[in-house]
Each structure stands twice: as structure tokens, then as C-alpha cells.
Amino acid sequence: MKLLNKWPVYYKKDVVTHYCPGCGHGIVHRIVAELLEEMDLGKRAVCVNPAGCAVLAYKYFDIDMIESAHGRGTAFATGIKRVRPDLFVFTYQGDGDLSAIGTAETIHSANRGEHITVIFINNAVYGMTGGQMAPTTLLGQKTTTTPGGRNPKFDGYPLHITDMIAPLPGVIYAERVAINGPAGIQKTKKAIQTAFQVQVDGLGYSIVEVLSPCPTNWKMTPADSFKWITEVMAKEYVPGVLSDKRGGAA
């Protein structure tokens, strides 16, 4: 009998992650580690991880990493990639990090077409700080700062940041996927692989938004979180390729 699922080299084995049971981060982490190995990028990769649940990601990935100030990941990545274009640079950010405090950095790094890849984990809440509303919280969704459910009159509408930047000429590839079951997980890997390849081929900026379960703050079981993504969240944040300008098409 031989092992059918090889341990991803760029993922530390003797560490239990701090993520909650059923958290999407763990799944996306494994996907990224597998891709870094399969695409042979680990040796020259630098990941900028966010302030948020994934603030400790450097304990799990076995590649060079730097933890950014909250929201500034794409600015860090711009600095790194500009002075060391030979490095493979990607950010790993949450919805608060990327589309609240980091909105300007997100929009302008995309608009400049920085040769970086952005992995955007959208779990509709602020996880690390205990489940507050995020820019991507759905209408009516209860969070610790929208106890009566998100009300647009006071809390505004779910922000579609990836859709906003997808048409920018600098954005070569933008896709949204969902961690809502085996099929969605495989699509997530495919999407991130495509986005990584955009950077490897020197085409420019790529981003993958990943709808990701947060069972603890959604107050659901992990399995129900998958269902909620499929039945509710994915209706607001529809998965699919938002822009693919690899062939030069719009």
C-alpha cells in the first residue's frame, strides 16, 4: 500500500493550525501549498499574509512570508515585486483586509497592473475579531455589529470589490470560486493555478476571490456552512470568471 495523497512540501507538517474546525483557510492553504509545489514556485515565492485570521499563516507555509499591516498587503507586495521582479509574489487577504481598510491599495495595485497575484478569502465577516460585519456581509445577515441583520439603510450593501476591479485594464485575470464542496474546492485550485500562471507568464495582475466558510462566526456546522455558501452567499457573489484578458481580450 502506498500513500496516495503526498504531503505538500511547502506546508509544515508538525503544526496544528489555529483555525476553527471547518474553516476555509485550511483548505485554501493546502491548495496553495500544493500549487507552489506542482508549479515549482516555492523556492522563489514570497507571500504577504494579512492581519486577520490568516495573520499566523507563516506558521503553516514553508516559504518566505511577511505579515502586512491590516489592509496593506498589496502595497507590501508592490514594493517587493517592484524591487525583486524575479520573485513570485502573492498576497493572501481577508474581506476586511482587502475591501475595507485596504480598498485603496487593492484598487490601485490592480489599476497599476502590478505583477502580483491576490488570493482574496471572502467569508462575509471579520473572523479574527469575533464576527463583526464586513463589507461583504450579506443583506439581512446577522453579525456582532449587525445584530438585527445587515440593514442597507445604515450598513450599506455587500461590496463587490472583485467585480469592480475586474474590468480594469491592469487586471489580467479575475475569478470567483467557492469552498462549498469537493467540486468547488477543485475549481478553487484550478482558478488559483490559472492566476499563478498569469504571474509566471509575466502577463500582469491576477486575483481569485474565494467564498470561504466561517462556521464559528456564522454559527453553523462546517457542512451547513458549505450549503449556506451554495444556497445563499453564491447568489450574491456569483462564482465565475470575471475577467480573462490573457488573450488580450477585454
Binding site: V48, I66, A75, F76, I80
Partner: peptide
């Protein structure tokens, strides 16, 4: 490399990135 950033906040964070790369 010269980058005109979108804000001074972004600029200092680009500095951090570039400095971390040596």
C-alpha cells in the same frame, strides 16, 4: 524603481515591502 502611490499610507507600506526584499 519609482512608484507614485495612491496615498502616503500606501507609499510607506510599499517601502516596507521593498525594504523586506533587501
Amino acid at each position: 524603481v519609482f512608484v507614485q502611490s495612491e496615498s502616503e499610507t500606501a507609499a510607506i507600506n510599499m517601502v516596507i515591502g521593498a525594504a523586506s526584499a533587501g
